[in-house]
Amino acid sequence: MNMIMETIKLNNIHKAFTLGGETVKALDGVSLAITQGEFIAVMGASGSGKSTLMNIMGCLDQASGGEYFLEGIRVDTMNKNQLADIRNQKIGFVFQGFNLLPRTSALENVELPLLYSRTSRPKMTRDRAVAALEMVGLAHRLDHHPNQLSGGQQQRVAIARALVNDPAIILADEPTGNLDSRTTVDVLSVFQTLNDNGITLILVTHEADVASYAKRIIRMKDGKIQEDRAVEERSFAAVPVSGNPKGKDENQ
């Protein structure tokens, strides 16, 4: 038995799709171990299987073969409702397109995972959502709707939503794909601060620049892990997250 329990442990994960009568092996025997506090960038060309890997790790999809342990619990055999609860309790998602609910305030967006939680007490909901928004430096934007926020701010709301339930991992799928370079650094600095606070992050990107902010890079090709290495020259975002919120407001 390992003394350190892996946050994520994948054993020989397979995933096959049938597209137009043809079987496509999206994942072909992926084994992976991620421990707590890691900051991993998953890279690869489109069709390399990185999105499928993310979906499986995020419990949105189920593998056709292999074993998946999340914080020591086997999840690949779980039913749909159990997976929904796992997503709610243990996983935070950040998407490329932000995926905030329109015409819903930042605070309500962040509260959403708590509303679906079967364990949290309703009284705590607001406090926890406010705390999460403070962590991403948006405490002063609680009642703004997504269309009143810049892209970078929207993504920070999405990050707040991902971490509000205190998840085991945060999965970010091309989180900077829709952002300009300055805002990209901004969002990455948020990620680095969260990681410094001990949150495990997995980030899918095809940009080497973005990947260099992580601690470890996994490169996918044809459904297999082609490369798995530590980042040697790691980039650091200059501005600390909650240091000077006013200076980071890039809009309005």
């Binding site: 409702n81 929904a84 609860d85 997503r87 709610n88 309790q89 959403l112 679906y116």
Partner: peptide, 16 residues
Amino acid sequence: TREIGIRMAIGARSGD
């Protein structure tokens, strides 16, 4: 559809 997807991703069960 997208809203439903978001809700499911953050932990809404089918029943919800």
